[in-house]
Design a protein around this nucleic acid. Structure first.
Lengths: 234, 234
DNA sequence: ATCTCTTAACTGGTTAACCAAACAATTATG
DNA sequence: CATAATTGTTTGGTTAACCAGTTAAGAGAT
């Protein structure tokens, strides 16, 4: 486990170094939007790393919209000014792995919004899926078993019903880390699962009644314990 | 361009198909948390695709915390129930590329929160960086040139000052797509850049004064035009 | 029969060779 | 001299061979 973390960390460091060097190169050569970068092979030679490393770094910058690779042609600087380019690369380089507090803060923000949207936009199909998730959670919780996953599936069903694909994606993105942190910090270990049934049911009823403000309030109540806990952890 | 979109789409389809088959396999074989999946080579044989394709699919599921690859050992089902597994895979398969409206909705939600946090948590260094971005934007806007990138850099500087790494990452994630959509739908084409100077300055002053509610209000005002526009587009 | 040690195969990860498309320079042709 | 055809080179992408570590089966000793 330790070893793996170290390796990942090394890879990250190498990639960040390459990204940093690409940035320097762009600045040094005064490359402007549309200009071509040196080929992957030249870059890997120049930086003394493998082409795979260079490719990964380029793909990361491509993900953030800073570069654009065109097959059999080359890698080009995106249509973005040199100032923005430098600023964004700096931000990307300094991206931290999200801490628990920031995850919970973000999750609460998203959930309070998605539950309102879900109340307004949900159709019968959405409602059915949310109910299904609720029932699955209730069944597990009543058995006294840990139901963290069923819990989060209920919330994901709401996110889906919000009909906002971006927030839905974000919820999916943070869910695995939330699960890991919950287990790490032993959140939801106690009998809170049983309390959760009532809270979940109330949220579901509010969505069913298409009452966005009530739904938001019930969601807020649901998170009040977690909220306090999260601020105590840090 | 068309060709490329097609290829990407094909790749996406193949990947989704593989993910779907992996899901079926897990269900059919009743694999439980900790169980080992068949090797990448066997899967690629079985599915009639390349190992690269299988690897990408596995990596995607790994990103969402559903699988865990261990070098020289195998790929394992994460510690997540079969119900949650199925639910999350379905969600992942149905992930849509975010539409403009959902992007703007999400951006506004994030910005109203980060500007409050930035007001409370910013230090002098943060403030300096925000001011820098503001000045760069002002300089560009006064020249009558399009300053979309400088605009977004200002907002990214605020997100950074919020000291919430998750929201900061999310802002970075949506920024390139926002830029593309802004150009596509010709947002900010007119002289709105000049109006933006005043609004940006007011936001900056509120952050400087550490007044979270005022900052939020000014940000809201700043987005009112975009908000309307976004709902007209759809 | 049981336990230990060796060995061979199997694993995900990595590297290097290969591919087809795009581009540039050169040559042939009007 | 200008233009079109062609050929050789360069590109990002793909594929297949390779690697080091793990695993488990099997031989041998007790």
């Amino acid at each position: 486990m330790k070893l793996e973390t170290l390796i990942v960390s090394d890879n990250q460091d190498i990639q960040n170094e390459i990204i940093s060097k690409i940035k320097e190169l762009i600045n040094f050569k005064n490359l402007e939007p549309g200009d071509k970068l040196p080929s992957e092979r030249m870059l890997s030679d120049k930086f003394g790393v493998t082409r795979s490393n260079v490719r990964e770094a380029i793909q990361k910058l491509e993900f953030y919209g800073l570069l654009k690779s065109i097959p059999q042609s080359g890698t080009f600087v995106a249509n973005i000014g040199v100032v923005a380019m430098n600023g964004m690369i700096d931000d990307i380089l300094r991206l931290e792995t999200p801490d628990f507090k920031s995850l919970v803060e973000t999750r609460i923000l998203l959930e309070l919004k998605t539950v309102k949207m879900a109340s307004l936009r949900r159709n019968e199909e959405d409602l059915r899926r949310i109910k299904e998730a609720l029932d699955a959670y209730e069944a597990k919780a009543l058995l006294g078993e840990p139901a963290v996953q069923e819990d989060l599936l209920f919330h994901l069903a709401i996110a889906k019903a919000s009909r906002n694909s971006t927030m839905n994606t974000f919820m999916l993105t943070i869910t695995p880390q939330i699960i890991i942190d919950f287990e790490k910090y032993h959140v939801c270990d106690k009998n809170q699962a049983v309390i959760g049934i009532k809270e979940h049911t109330e949220i579901y009823e509010a969505i069913k009644a298409q009452d966005p403000d009530l739904a938001k309030q019930k969601m807020k109540d649901h998170f009040s314990i977690l909220y306090q806990y999260c601020y105590n952890v840090k």
